[in-house]
Design a binder for these strands. Structure first.
Length: 212
DNA sequence: CACCAGGCAAGTA
DNA sequence: TACTTGCATGGT
């Protein structure tokens, strides 16, 4: 089976099973970005309450975060874990957008996809997955997000080797699928959802411990 | 009680 | 370059 057929088959199976997952759950691009940083190696359920808390404090805007003091922000996001380092990461991103774009996300997202990606990666606290999540889910850019579930699922299906890099995995998807924002959006969401649930929805991996 | 969760950067050799 | 460690709370 060709890799592109395989990737499309997996998508069709998962999509039929789970339906439209409607990612990313957020009211604004800025909320997506804050959520992307807060959910790093953290269960999403621990992030949800923090998002609500930030919204009530009227802090889900570049200006709001820019003005709030570190210890206040740290206290608000505490229950999402890694709260001291995440405070620094959020603040370093805010510093970046004010320095480069006057705090205007529309100006940031007007920039070329791959050059913006390079700039995001230079911000301390934004790695490849967070950068791509921001680009896809906040900026509606056609880029594929790779996470630990993605790698694990592809490894179980012998579509990649164990030491495949982030870039290689991303290229596998982007070389064999149409560069469609809705497709990339839903596909990554389906892979994460699969990792959180069970492997039996994929016939080829019948019985394999996909979620371990 | 142990283990995991929608990573990342800094330190070491 | 390749490998290890710290970061931290909350649910199962």
């Amino acid at each position: 089976m060709q890799q592109n057929d395989c990737l499309l088959s997996i998508y069709e199976i998962l999509n039929a099973h789970f339906g439209n997952l409607r990612w990313w759950p957020a009211d604004s691009p800025f909320e997506v970005i804050i959520g992307a940083i807060l959910t790093q190696n953290t269960a999403w359920r621990n992030v949800e309450n923090v998002i609500i808390r930030l919204k009530k404090a009227d802090l889900l805007s570049p200006e709001g975060i820019r003005k709030v003091e570190d210890h206040v922000l740290a206290n608000l996001i505490k229950s999402s874990g890694y709260y001291l380092i995440k405070t620094k990461r959020i603040k370093s991103f805010i510093h970046f957008i004010y320095e480069e774009y006057g705090g205007d996300l529309d100006i940031m997202f007007a920039e070329d996809l791959w050059s913006l990606r390079e700039k995001l990666l230079k911000v301390k606290g934004i790695g490849e997955e967070t950068a791509d999540s921001i680009l896809l889910y906040a900026g509606n850019k056609p880029i594929f997000v790779v996470d630990t579930y993605t790698k694990r699922i592809l490894m179980r299906h012998n579509l990649i080797h164990t030491d495949a890099t982030y870039k290689e995995i991303q290229r596998l998807f982007m070389n064999h699928l149409p560069h469609s924002v809705p497709l990339f959006n839903q596909y990554h969401a389906l892979l994460v959802n699969t990792g959180k649930n069970f492997c039996t929805v994929i016939p080829q991996c019948d019985g394999c411990p996909l979620h371990t």
